[in-house]
Amino acid sequence: MNKLNVLLVAVVMVFATGFAQAQKIASVDINSIFTSMPEMKALDAQLQTLQTSKQGELEKQGKSLQDLMKKYQDEAPKQTQAINEQRSQEVQKLQDNLQQLYAAAQKDIAEKRDAGLAPIEKKINDAIAKVSKAASYEFVFDASSPALVYKAGTDATAAVKKELGL
């Protein structure tokens, strides 16, 4: 029985020693890094220009459709039932086309954003990996993430910004 107790104490000590070694944990505010990167500012400007352009096109098409609808409504009492139905179908088709143009514009903007974000994200991730290896961090959490419950580790945001030259 005494040998069993000694063995149990030895096993507990081995596990306790393993858990007692402190792990280096850091946090990074990725949102802060994104907003301070010139590449992100340039991407935002490009996306704003694209959105303004697409919005102008859509407004022009929408105005044209509204003018046509007003014209058809004003002329409706003077037209035959068949012509009014034909015009109604034409207006419906134009409305559907406008909705498709809107969806295509949204898709274009999203694709442009995703394509522009990919190299920026890679650059940030590479910088985080380099800083983490240099400082021997075992874990780095995104401080701007809602999944982060407790933040008391070292904040590596400044080091990552320095690595990126920001």
Rank of each mutant, 00 (worst) to 15 (best):
A147W: 15
S136Q: 14
T52M: 02
A127S: 12
E75G: 09
A20C: 10
A129N: 01
G62T: 12
M37H: 00
I33W: 04
E75H: 01
Q61K: 13
Q51H: 08
L166E: 11
T49E: 09
V160T: 05
L164K: 08
Y72A: 11
A147M: 15
R113M: 14
Y150N: 15
A143I: 06
K93A: 13
Q95I: 06
D96G: 14
D44L: 10
L94M: 14
P146V: 15
K112T: 12
R113F: 08
K54I: 03
Q51C: 00
S145P: 02
N31S: 13
R87K: 15
Q81C: 00
R113S: 12
A82G: 07
S32H: 09
T35P: 01
N84K: 09
I109H: 11
A82Q: 14
E90T: 08
L101W: 06
Q81T: 08
L166S: 07
M1Y: 08
L58E: 06
Q46A: 06
K112F: 01
K60P: 02
F34Y: 06
E163C: 00
A26D: 04
Q86G: 13
F15K: 06
Q92S: 12
A152Q: 15
G56S: 04
A135Q: 14
D126S: 04
A127G: 03
Q92C: 05
E39Y: 00
D44Q: 15
Q106W: 00
Q21F: 09
V91P: 03
I128A: 09
L68E: 15
K3W: 11
V14P: 05
F141E: 04
I109W: 05
G56Y: 00
L101G: 11
D142V: 02
S64N: 15
R113A: 15
D44T: 13
N2R: 12
T154I: 07
P38K: 06
G56I: 01
A26Y: 04
A152D: 12
K112M: 07
L50F: 03
V131L: 01
A104C: 02
Q86H: 07
M69V: 14
D114G: 13
A135V: 01
K71G: 03
Q48E: 10
F141C: 08
G62V: 07
Q89Y: 03
S132Y: 01
V12R: 08
E121S: 14
G116N: 08
T35I: 12
V11F: 09
K3G: 09
T17L: 14
A110F: 06
M69Y: 09
E57Y: 03
Q100D: 13
D96T: 11
N97A: 15
K162G: 00
L43D: 03
N84D: 04
L98R: 02
M1L: 10
Q79S: 13
A104D: 12
Y102N: 14
F139T: 11
L98K: 01
L58V: 04
L117K: 12
D114V: 07
T157Q: 03
